[in-house]
């Protein structure tokens, strides 16, 4: 799962991804990129992200943590 998330993020952000990657550390991670990341996560893992989670999925770590809680 971790690899898949990194793959998705790389595809959208087009830069190297590390554990520190987040919207705060990366200028590439803007609101448009965020939109695409959410849509791709939903498509790839076949889930629907809750509205209140949208702003929180703003880093590699938080996305992985969220997906673990969601699909184990």
């Amino acid at each position: 799962m971790r690899n898949k998330v990194i793959e998705l993020l790389t595809k959208v952000l087009k830069v190297g991804i590390s554990d520190e990657s987040s919207s705060e550390t990366m200028p590439e991670w803007d609101s448009l990129a965020h939109m695409r990341i959410v849509v791709m996560i939903e498509d790839s893992f076949d889930i629907e992200v809750e509205d209140e989670m949208l702003p929180k999925l703003n880093s590699l770590v938080s996305i992985i943590k969220y997906l673990e809680s969601k699909i184990g």
Binding site: V39, E42, E48, L54
Partner: peptide
Amino acid sequence: LNWSGFYRFSAPYKH
């Protein structure tokens, strides 16, 4: 159509 994309981001189409 991607309805959640539409209501969230005004992005109504699937990729």
